[in-house]
Design a protein around this nucleic acid. Structure first.
Lengths: 347, 347
DNA sequence: GCGCGAAATGTTGACGTAAACATAACTCGG
DNA sequence: CCGAGTTATGTTTACGTCAACATTTCGCGC
């Protein structure tokens, strides 16, 4: 009695009954297999038959059922992305790139955001993705510290991590944080500043850590004094709070800030205190957001190529998915210094 | 030729063979159906049996196959999102909210970004989503103008649109653009400014249109002169370019800008020209981005509750999916004025 | 102690697709 | 004009899950 059409002719939810291959096959007078061949663009179909099937597909509005397709083939043509919220500028930009590259390759994106970047949250999200029919996973989490247990995920699914820590058993793609931080710090030293204060991102962030480390090493290499690190949380507000302290210290003439938003807050604090930028204090940020060229003054900053990172991540993942063996490698995309007006020679 | 499985017994890609219900059933010594019942938390299973099945699941690492489940049930527990790139602040924030609400409801998100917001691109994306096993679609496109042919999508799938135009045959959720624009304009008039110049978003944007219209109507209602509209493209750069023109006009004392980023550019242009904000020119933005309280001066702006919008959109969509009939209604989330330091009384 | 119903569990089949395996039709060289 | 090779098409089956139906087990009232 499985035949529904007989008993319930007017079923509102009957729309669920989609047009299937069998329907097309019947309409075109061929077998389902031939429809399948046409749908998948196989060559061994008579042009005339192909046309007939195409016509039937169009008139019936046939759309292949991806669930069935996935069940049959084991491929879902979908890539999972695990993100730690969408608030960070860089991650969002990377996601954008990931989305378009994946789309070009015929993959759609399944997005999961996690509240906190703990091991349990991330692997929980991972499990959900694994259940949810994805061929591979991109983990896009700049801020996380998983404690002693490093990222350990259920096996079997290709994974690429976009992050700054090298300790993963998965391929890692990232911007070259250390290069950018070095360029920024050297730029300020080259302008004659005796030392450079650093406003860091949160301690849990590996990206922040690498920038901080490179800043310190650059100062040491130049024989400059290494001031105490100030720690923010990436927000402009935290930059402002820390900036109020900096504004009171006449000895500070150069600040390297770990992202543009905190730099914005810092600059506001300096303005409020009547300290000129770059006259009294030079400021260099990190990210080169779309807005930073319109800060007042326009911000000298480190440009990250998030689009390259996103693209590289997807390419690496697709290679893994296609079985070209997992490359546990590490790809660093170069960063570059963009000099604008917030940095100048020491007064 | 292509057949590899037979010749390569040690196939690295053999991991694709996931643990299935049958494996668990065999391990636990029960039928597949019983496993299914345990997996779905049915009540009519003997506690002891349930425990045995659970143990087998864990030791084998069983994960239900969502493709098979979807094929069987017609439900995918996935919501499609069509976005016009991720560059806009508001859309990204809305997406964030959508992601967490959907996740709470047990749905994952399938994200598709489109390059341009044309009818063909959007419906192309829609078709891809329909193929891609989603239960419903959220269209999150603030900037689009589809010409005379209004958004016409293949039928059968619940849809919610987040946008400012009322002309859809689908439920629409949006921030109350008109309210915000009115509040902003009235605020400036109340401060004593004789008129208010408006920098609009692009003409293709319905959001920009509604803000522009409300600005004009507010001026007219107060009997104020309506200056020519300046049209930007949402970027800070465009705000800067237009701002250079404004800075030369001594008669302009108040500007209502259609988003915060253009306001940032405008303020930079004013600074460059030596015109004080708000001393010479008052500026009000729109969005209340995370950064705008740290602009210099901190920006008076209109706060949009993107999180509410995202949540409302998902709730409406889930209601549709659950068959509570399509509500072709329109939900406006209130906006509010946030007064900071970029606006002040007319000199 | 017999039969009835409830609870626990098993069996069958279908969802839509595509791989593997037929089979039919048609080409072409000798 | 026959058989081998090629191309077009059809048939069967399995993917993993779950609803529907079938069967078994057991408790309990009379």
């Amino acid at each position: 009695m499985g035949e529904d059409a007989s008993s319930t002719p007017v079923d509102t939810r009957a729309r669920r009954r989609e047009v299937s291959m069998a329907d097309v096959a019947a309409a075109a007078g061929v077998s389902g297999q031939t429809v399948s061949r046409v749908a998948n663009g196989r060559s061994n179909v008579d042009p005339e038959t192909r046309e007939r099937v195409r016509a039937a597909m169009n008139s019936l509005g046939y759309r292949p059922n991806s669930a069935a397709r996935a069940l049959r083939s084991g491929r879902f043509h979908s890539i999972g992305v695990i993100m730690f919220s969408l608030s960070s500028y860089g991650n969002t930009r990377t996601l954008d790139a990931v989305a378009s590259v994946a789309a070009d390759a015929g993959y759609s994106l399944t997005l999961i955001t996690v509240e906190s970047a703990t091991q349990s949250d991330v692997s929980g999200a991972f499990v959900r993705l694994a259940e949810h029919a994805v061929d591979g996973v991109v983990i896009l989490i700049e801020t996380h510290r998983l404690g002693e247990t490093e990222l350990a995920l259920p096996s079997g699914l290709p994974v690429v991590v976009v992050d700054s820590n090298a300790e993963y058993a998965y391929p890692v793609v990232d911007n070259d944080q250390a290069l950018g931080a070095r360029l920024a710090t050297e730029h300020l030293l080259d302008l004659g500043h005796e030392s450079v204060v650093h406003i860091s991102g949160p301690l849990e962030s590996y990206a922040a850590e690498r920038r901080r480390t490179a800043w310190r090493e650059t100062l040491e290499a130049r024989g400059a004094r290494v001031p105490e690190v100030l720690v923010g949380d990436w927000t402009a507000d935290s930059g402002y709070e820390l900036g109020r302290g900096i504004a009171e210290r006449a000895d500070v003439t150069a600040v390297f800030v770990s992202n543009d938003q905190m730099a914005l807050g810092l600059i506001r604090a300096l303005h409020e205190a009547g300290r000129a930028v770059p006259g009294d204090v030079s400021v260099v940020g990190f990210d080169d957001t779309a807005d930073s060229s319109n800060y007042w003054p326009p911000l000298t900053t480190v440009r990250q190529h998030f689009d390259w990172v996103g693209e590289a991540a997807i390419r690496a993942l697709l290679a893994e998915i296609d079985g070209d063996g997992p490359h546990t490698e590490r790809l660093l995309v170069p960063t570059e210094l963009v000099v604008r007006e917030s940095s100048g020679p020491r007064a």
